[in-house]
Design a binder for these strands. Structure first.
Lengths: 201, 201
DNA sequence: TGGTGCCGGTGACAGGTGTCACCGGTGCGT
DNA sequence: ACGCACCGGTGACACCTGTCACCGGCACCA
């Protein structure tokens, strides 16, 4: 029996995935959590073989959870199951020690197989995404550029960004300008969106 | 047996929901589609009692699908199952003739019950959302204001918006200014985000 | 030891943005 | 016939943005 932990913030999806996996004779869902920051403790209690981790979660995102699991030296493997197939996500997930990366667009009957492969110690990666990730190259943004872009995502003014980051408005504009150049965008919001699309934030 | 059609663009979620509902003795998933514009034709072929419709779908969004089903006079009920609990979504879904509205945050074991209630001719509405929808009041934006806000969502410049909408830049700025005032925002992107949050777009 | 890259900042400049006042036209209710 | 709201537009104004040049400082590496 492969023991599985499910982490997804949408209860309905979580329950549905549990129903799907419980249909398999060799898979058993031993725990479900709705927040990233509850995963490590739950893993200690239930010692699952594989953790299915959504990336978008409150508390702690799935990539950080994968890193925390490896950090803690727990003998469980991470399989990312996420809505957004962003190249940067894949790269960061792999860097964080995840064993697999599956998009929620994949056919339902492939999930169980992915779980088995991960459990067997293999790596499972969405092939489309893998090539995109290679073509896209690494994240070209500096830390500060990412900071200002994150704040710019919802359309904040330079003043507000400067205030939140404790920076001079001029400095913020410089980082924004640089980020706009690197992303090939025309405005800071476009740059922020582009960066988000690529999983650079 | 309650015959159910599933419409969701994420194959994994679709399959998982099917697994979940098929566990119920009185429910049968008779069709699954991944695009909104395939629903009506599939309903004609499979004549389900209840359609589970995601709102965010390619081709045709779930609300438009519900409207199309009613328009076509088909004897099937619509139950919206969506990620985002935006007050405006609920209102528009009900106006479009949906019989129920469930958020993907609800516990998995309540879904089957919601399907049964809808099948029995009852209305199923997330109570939290219902009050929010009443408090929030109706959509204050005019059609044109919504148009410019939609274009402004990704950070486009006034020129680009004007070009896409075949309007004068000055007119676009007037609509944007008006929308910014109505939403209480400081920039057009903030206004667009706020409007999106409320389901006004 | 100098080169390179990132951080933080300043100043200046062209052009974009948000606001306001105001115009004519249309449709709708009273 | 009138008010009213929405559409589409113009012109003007203050202010914000995006770009560029340039500064000092720090860390790292050859």
């Amino acid at each position: 029996m492969i023991r599985v932990l499910l982490a997804d913030d949408q209860a309905l999806v979580r329950g549905a995935l549990a129903a799907l996996l419980d249909l398999e004779r060799d898979i058993e869902v031993v725990a479900q959590v709705g927040r990233g920051d509850e995963v490590v403790a739950t893993v200690r209690h239930t010692s699952p073989d594989v953790c299915l981790l959504d990336i978008e979660m409150p508390g702690l995102d799935g990539i950080a959870v994968a890193a925390a699991l490896r950090e803690a030296g727990l003998p469980t493997r991470s399989l990312m199951v996420t809505t957004f197939g962003r190249p940067g996500y894949l790269r960061r997930a792999m860097d964080a020690g995840a064993s697999g990366f599956v998009v929620k667009d994949t056919p339902a009957d492939e999930l169980a197989e992915a779980v088995r492969r991960v459990h067997a110690g293999l790596r499972v990666v969405d092939p489309t995404l893998a090539t995109e990730s290679l073509i896209g190259g690494p994240n070209p943004l500096t830390d500060r550029e990412r900071d200002v872009l994150r704040e710019a995502l919802d359309g904040a003014t330079v003043q507000r960004i400067a205030g939140r980051l404790y920076l001079s408005p001029g400095t913020v504009r410089n980082y924004l300008s640089s980020a706009i150049g690197k992303t090939g965008a025309d405005t800071r919001v476009e740059a922020a969106r582009a960066a988000e699309e690529n999983g650079w934030l």
